[in-house]
């Protein structure tokens, strides 16, 4: 069974989606990511979708779910690398990603996660 690798970088988890996922793969990713957040005490989740040629409502819902689940587990989710054509299509499709933070690339995504964690620490 194909699986999307989840890499650990410091206190963040990095997921780079490189294949056209069918539904079961997306659901597996959701499950294994939540497990890994708890196992590794991750504070941030970075999801790279730069290889995805389309993002429909199913993947959109998966990204929303991951963001909500990680928030409950005290981790910040940032989606990076969305292609311009995908962004245009998502907006026309009417898919909003409330609660999903986005950044243009992995570097900016990691910065955003770092800032969010630091902000959270100040308010604690």
């Amino acid at each position: 069974m194909e699986q999307i690798p989840i890499l650990r970088i410091g206190d963040c988890l990095l997921v780079s989606i490189q294949v056209d996922m069918h539904d079961r793969m997306a659901i597996n990713l959701q499950d294994s990511l939540t497990t890994r957040i708890v196992e590794t005490n991750a504070r941030g989740v970075l999801i790279d979708i730069s290889a995805l040629e389309i993002v429909g409502s199913f993947i959109g819902r998966m990204l929303n779910n991951i963001a909500s689940m990680s928030r409950v587990l005290d981790a910040v989710t940032v989606v990076v690398g969305m292609r311009p054509a995908v962004a245009i299509t998502l907006v026309e499709l009417g898919l909003e990603l409330p609660g999903v933070k986005t950044a243009l690339n992995v570097d900016r995504g990691l910065l955003l996660i770092r800032r969010q964690i630091d902000d959270g620490a100040e308010h604690a």
Binding site: D20, H22, E53, P84, A85, T89, L93
Partner: peptide, 30 residues
Amino acid sequence: GEDVVRLRQVVRAEAIAIGLSLVDQTKVIT
């Protein structure tokens, strides 16, 4: 689910073959 993946591949191939722009390809595949 695997059939949907195949469908996306076929639609993409035909969209490219008739010369749809990248944005229009993405829209029809989605």
